[in-house]
């Protein structure tokens, strides 16, 4: 019965979507706003990657909100797990095999370096702070696989997160002071295509990369439950 109601409801919904989607033609250029970004993005912001220009300059305020949402996720995550009962775990995790431990130790610096590369070149090539941060977190995931009982300092993670978040806002306020607008690109834009160009974009992406990396690492850290073991010992 429940299924029939659900299917009926969804049929009505699909018909509604079908009606409205008819007026959105597929595969043709249709928005003035998007064309403006493509035509003037490099000139306005100095970034070769127009998506980055939109994310950090035209719509930088959204990104500030986005960074806040991620920060909130980590905060909420640890608030929810804060009052958790500490269980005694009898079975110690099995030690990793030789291949895993050697392989991970070998890969760890390279993955980390790749993550840093991605967020530093966010204004030139595909990628950016969020993607780079995720890669960095995966490097730490490898690290944790090798040493499941490694203690991590939650305090320092939180400090890194809040400091880089504050750095983002401070750059925004500097934009307000020097450029009259919050988050305005007040630094010289340089020559498009060079590593040091596009004003504040690489700077913000570096902070976002550090922040996202430490946040996702924090979530992995929590989900692996190492926190509990620490208190048992």
């Amino acid at each position: 019965m429940k299924k029939i109601i659900a299917i009926l409801f969804l049929l009505v919904l699909s018909y509604g979507i079908y009606l409205s989607i008819n007026s959105i033609p597929f595969g043709v250029s249709k928005t003035k706003v998007g064309n403006y970004y493509n035509l003037n993005g490099v000139k306005d912001t100095g970034a070769n990657n127009i998506v980055t220009a939109v994310v950090l300059n035209y719509r930088g305020f959204d990104t500030l909100g986005e960074v806040t949402v991620l920060f909130l996720a980590v905060l909420g995550f640890s608030t929810i797990l804060f009052t958790m009962k500490k269980k005694k775990s009898d079975n110690m995790p099995t030690p990793p095999s030789l291949i895993l431990s050697i392989g991970c130790k070998f890969l760890f610096p390279f993955v980390l370096l790749f993550g840093i590369y991605i967020f530093i070149h966010g204004h030139l090539s595909p990628g950016g702070g969020f993607q780079g941060g995720a890669v960095i977190a995966s490097a730490f995931l490898l690290f944790y696989l090798v040493k499941p009982s490694e203690k991590s300092s939650k305090k320092s993670f939180q400090l890194i997160e809040s400091l880089s978040g504050m750095a983002f806002i401070v750059i925004g306020i500097l934009g307000l002071v020097f450029g009259n607008y919050f988050l305005s690109n007040f630094l010289p834009k340089g020559i498009a295509g060079k590593l040091i160009s596009a004003g504040i974009i690489p700077l913000i992406y570096i902070f976002i990369g550090i922040k996202v990396g430490s946040e996702l690492t924090g979530i992995i850290d929590r989900l692996m439950g190492k926190n509990n073991e620490k208190q048992v010992k």
Binding site: Y36, D44, Y58, R59, F61, G175, N180, Y181, F182
Partner: peptide, 13 residues
């Protein structure tokens, strides 16, 4: 009306 980043509307926020 405050523009974010100083880009003219509707391109900015």
């Amino acid at each position: 009306v405050v523009l974010m980043g100083g880009y003219s509307l509707p391109f900015g926020i």
